[in-house]
Design a protein around this nucleic acid. Sequence first.
DNA 1: TCTTATATGTGCTAAAGCGCACATAGCAAA
DNA 2: TTTGCTATGTGCGCTTTAGCACATATAAGA
Lengths: 238, 238
Amino acid sequence: MSTSAPTGVFSSNNFILNSLKGDDLERLLPYLEPVELPQGKMLYDVDDRIRYLYFLNNGMISVVNVGGDGVQTEVGVIGREGFSGVEGLLGDVSSINRQMIQLPGDGYRARIEPLQDEMLRAGAFQQMTHKLMRAGLAQIGQTSLCNRLHKNEERLAKWLLMCHDRFDGDMLPITHEFAAIMLGANRTSVTQAAGQLQDKGLITYSRGKVRVTDRPGLEAYSCECYRKIAAEYARLTA
Amino acid sequence: MSTSAPTGVFSSNNFILNSLKGDDLERLLPYLEPVELPQGKMLYDVDDRIRYLYFLNNGMISVVNVGGDGVQTEVGVIGREGFSGVEGLLGDVSSINRQMIQLPGDGYRARIEPLQDEMLRAGAFQQMTHKLMRAGLAQIGQTSLCNRLHKNEERLAKWLLMCHDRFDGDMLPITHEFAAIMLGANRTSVTQAAGQLQDKGLITYSRGKVRVTDRPGLEAYSCECYRKIAAEYARLTA
DNA sequence: TCTTATATGTGCTAAAGCGCACATAGCAAA
DNA sequence: TTTGCTATGTGCGCTTTAGCACATATAAGA
């Protein structure tokens, strides 16, 4: 808290912060505060005013839409490849959806105001944000198709891969219950699907811990949506 | 073609063009060409280079994601409230998805280059585009949830309402077959759903013509997604 | 060790929707 | 009028998944 602004050499695992150099970075440094992000922490709920943007070094945010009767579905995820709260930079600071920490981690946060100013400059931050929105549009569109057309088992595989990409280690702290909420599916259906993935030797799990044991196999089994989304984000850093 | 650039008083039903005044408008006028948009015309296919942006006065574009095995689902629609090809303004001119004219109409098109320049200016066009992207993110997210959680009949109602909003008159040129593709559903399932909406007195249809006979009833029957999306776009012009 | 909360296993019924086959009906061109 | 194409109606079996209910197992804490 007290040593909020990193000085001198700055380093981060966040792809966006990492891509900034010179003045583009210098202007932001004073506003970056390190934060710990515990599992379950809600960054924004629907219609909340966005005050901070979060740049993760590790961990994963679930971006969730909420239906009229309280049902939810994840429409996208955010990890070190991006930052949360982009919509706050688009002329209105209210959050479109619910965003919460799905996998714990750490990163930096910055008040939204200096970043709004940055968006008015045709600089590196604006450019990266635009690219990120492009990838975000691709992700959310592909997820929409996936939600409609693919089976729970494939969607679970895809989702575990996306988690695995953004979290250090092979052991993911995830319960069937939570995965079900994210996938917009029934808990028993997820248990069914997870059981099948386990039978195929792709994962093992026990009481809230899912271990990815055969990453290539999981990729092969997942629907093409995983690859399409990953490819879109790979272009960000290419 | 020859009288491409409207001069003097300019008027359009397109909300974005309409919102521009003074210099912000003047800079674009030389690039605007009137276009007719016949049903079925493909504006961009996946990975196509985006050369023109389309500003509709009337009609509707379907934004469609395409799966590995050729299956498709609509992930969003565009009418006079926006313009097509926003992703071309985000650092890469390749199209993320397939975009085609679902309901015929007319409008203007402009080469992408002057609009890319415009995006580097903190002017009215950039501002409107940002707001539009915000609404687009909201639409596509809500559609994703809808695709996952709501029944075909509700989704059909929602889709017909979105068509109705963007097309002049109550008679929509739509076949069950085409609606099925857009909804990512079976043709027979759409026939089933359409039959039920007709039984309820909300629509009538025959051979590629769907007539909305009870608009308020259709709104009441549709899932909340319609209202949420409409509300988000209403903020654009508020 | 005992207790308790939570995570997972499993069995059942039912609904939704797919996928296919085939019938019929309306429209248009010859 | 005839022909043919396209749009819609309909029936049926099948898969997936929802939605329950309840059993069991594991971890954490008293």
